[in-house]
C-alpha cells in the first residue's frame, strides 16, 4: 500500500468511526430522551404483538434514517475529496481508487449500499405517509416493504460488490 492509499484508507476509517460514533450517540440519547428504545425483552414482547405496538418499529426507522443520512453525507464528502484528486494528478487518482477494490473497502461499500437503499426507500415511505395519508397501521406495513426492498436490493448489490474478492 502506497502513502496516498494509506492516507485515503485512514480517512475512510475516520469517516466509518464517525458514523459509528453518531449511531451510538443517537441510540444513547434516545434512551435518555425518547423513552421508547430500551432494547429489552419488554420491547421485543411489544413488537411481537400485532397492531399499534408495532408502530414502535417506526421509531427505530427514524433513528436508522438519521444515522444513514449522516453516513451518506459523510461518505459523500470523502468521495468528493478523492474524486477531486483527478484535477491534480491522473496517476494519483488511479492509485487512490485502487483502494476501493480491497476487501475492507468493499465491505464498507456494502454497508453504504444498505444505508443508501434504506434511506431512499424510507424517504419515499415518509412522502407516501403525507401524500397517500397513510395511518399508523398502513405506514407500519409500508415499513415492512422498505425493509424487504432494502434487504432484497442490498443482497443483490452485495453479490455484485463482493464477487471479485470472494471468487
Amino acid at each position: 500500500m502506497t502513502v496516498p492509499q494509506f492516507l485515503f484508507f485512514c480517512a475512510f476509517s475516520v469517516v466509518a468511526l464517525a458514523i459509528i460514533a453518531f449511531g451510538v450517540l443517537v441510540v444513547r440519547t434516545a434512551q435518555v430522551d425518547d423513552g421508547g428504545p430500551f432494547v429489552s425483552r419488554a420491547l421485543l414482547a411489544r413488537l411481537a404483538k400485532p397492531g399499534s405496538e408495532r408502530a414502535e418499529l417506526q421509531r427505530w426507522a427514524f433513528y436508522l434514517h438519521r444515522i444513514s443520512g449522516v453516513a451518506l453525507f459523510a461518505f459523500l464528502c470523502l468521495h468528493v475529496g478523492d474524486v477531486s484528486l483527478f484535477v491534480f494528478s491522473r496517476e494519483l487518482y488511479d492509485e487512490v481508487h485502487q483502494v476501493y477494490g480491497s476487501t475492507a473497502m468493499r465491505i464498507g461499500e456494502v454497508g453504504l449500499l444498505f444505508g443508501l437503499l434504506f434511506h431512499a426507500f424510507n424517504g419515499i415511505r415518509l412522502v407516501a405517509v403525507d401524500v397517500a395519508d397513510l395511518g399508523l397501521v398502513a405506514s407500519t406495513r409500508a415499513l415492512y416493504g422498505v425493509v424487504a426492498a432494502t434487504v432484497l436490493c442490498g443482497g443483490v448489490g452485495t453479490v455484485y460488490i463482493m464477487a471479485p474478492v470472494i471468487g
Binding site: S52, A55, E56, Q58, R59, F62, H65, L126, G135, L136
Partner: peptide, 25 residues
C-alpha cells in the same frame, strides 16, 4: 413531525394525533 407514530400508539384515549398533523399539513 417525522411520523414516528409514537403519539398515536401511546394515546391512552385512542386518539390519532398523527392523523391530525397530516390534516394540518
Amino acid at each position: 413531525c417525522h411520523y414516528i407514530y409514537g403519539c398515536s400508539a401511546a394515546c391512552p384515549k385512542g386518539l390519532d394525533p398523527a392523523q391530525a398533523i397530516r390534516r394540518l399539513r
